[in-house]
């Protein structure tokens, strides 16, 4: 896989940072402009007069990113928004507005399931029961399914991806770059300090999420399909136990059996829904 180095070495990202892995995929884009709202990547991008991202970057306030990208897209192709789940929460109406306009942009949400840049606070996509500094007893709120919500905007391309499966992610970015209109990729990005696991385990944890069925790789390009490794895990018996995925992360310390059952039920519901989508939105 030919990946140009987009994020230059010696940047301020934490050890084992999933965004740093994910950003590599942008190297397959031709002459992109990257719009970055506030978040971890704001820091990772470095300090004036230097920057660590070897692409044109526009730093913008939290809720504005897809709209700024829309403005840039009036002059240029290949405008990309690289944002976190925080910017997605606070800027959800901006994201939705951009999607219904079918702006010619690609939005990648690199989702580490909490507001990490401010120190691990709960977000809309924080995993069920996960501990954050604002949910010290575990998340009681629901987890929103961002990519499915975006799918319902009837945009030409929506996908989920994982930093544990870069080839799948890169293929999706490439595919998205060839489609005109609004493209959305929801990238699963396990965060070592935020999820409380060792910095060497980022890729392993990301893969365990997929192998346990907790994160599902799929794609919609007119047809809906489960993709990559996740195809194998339609069959529940082939998955690794969910507890294996949860156990390696400090944020799930102290989960009860009932908590695990609740999470499992939620995951089963998602799989059922995706199954219906795969059988319904299918041009072939």
């Amino acid at each position: 896989m030919d990946l140009r180095c987009v994020l230059l070495p010696g940047n301020p990202s934490c050890q084992g940072c999933p965004h740093a892995i994910g950003l590599k995929a942008l190297s397959v884009l031709e002459n992109p402009i990257v719009v970055v709202p506030a978040g971890c990547t704001t820091i990772i991008a470095g300090f004036n007069p230097k920057q660590s991202i070897d692409l044109p970057v526009v730093h913008v306030p939290f809720a504005s990113a897809p709209a700024v990208a829309c403005g840039l897209s009036k002059a240029y192709d290949n405008v990309v928004v690289w944002m976190g789940d925080g910017a997605t929460d606070i800027g959800f109406s901006t994201l939705s507005g951009s999607a219904i306009r079918n702006d010619n942009i690609l939005v990648v949400v690199s989702d580490n399931e909490a507001y990490m840049n401010t120190g691990i606070q709960m977000s809309g996509t924080t995993f069920w029961k996960a501990k954050t500094t604002t949910t010290p007893a575990g998340k009681r709120e629901e987890k929103k399914d961002l990519a499915l919500i975006m799918l319902m905007h009837r945009i030409p391309y929506v996908a989920t991806a994982s930093v544990g499966y870069m080839r799948d992610f890169v293929r999706k970015v490439k595919k998205a770059s060839k489609i005109k209109g609004f493209k959305f990729i929801h990238l699963h990005s396990p965060c070592p300090p935020g999820w409380r696991f060792d910095s060497s385990k980022t890729v392993e944890v990301a893969r365990m999420a997929v192998k346990s069925g907790a994160w599902i790789l799929w794609e919609y390009d007119g047809s809906f399909r489960i993709t990559g490794m996740s195809r194998m895990f339609r069959d529940k018996s082939k998955r690794i136990p969910l507890t294996e995925y949860l156990r390696v992360q400090g944020r799930f310390k102290g989960l009860t059996e009932e908590d695990v059952r609740t999470i499992e039920e939620r995951i089963d519901e998602v799989w059922k829904l995706l199954d219906v989508l795969e059988n319904t939105i299918n041009k072939a």
């Binding site: 700024v68 403005g71 897209s73 009036k74 901006t94 306009r101």
Partner: peptide
């Protein structure tokens, strides 16, 4: 080009982007 947006925050954000790209906005 007229861009319909869902909020004023986005309205100014859109023209911020287009003006950055060199278009009178």
């Amino acid at each position: 080009e007229f861009v319909n947006v869902e909020s004023e925050h986005s309205a100014l954000s859109v023209v911020y982007g287009s003006a950055l790209a060199g278009l009178r906005s």
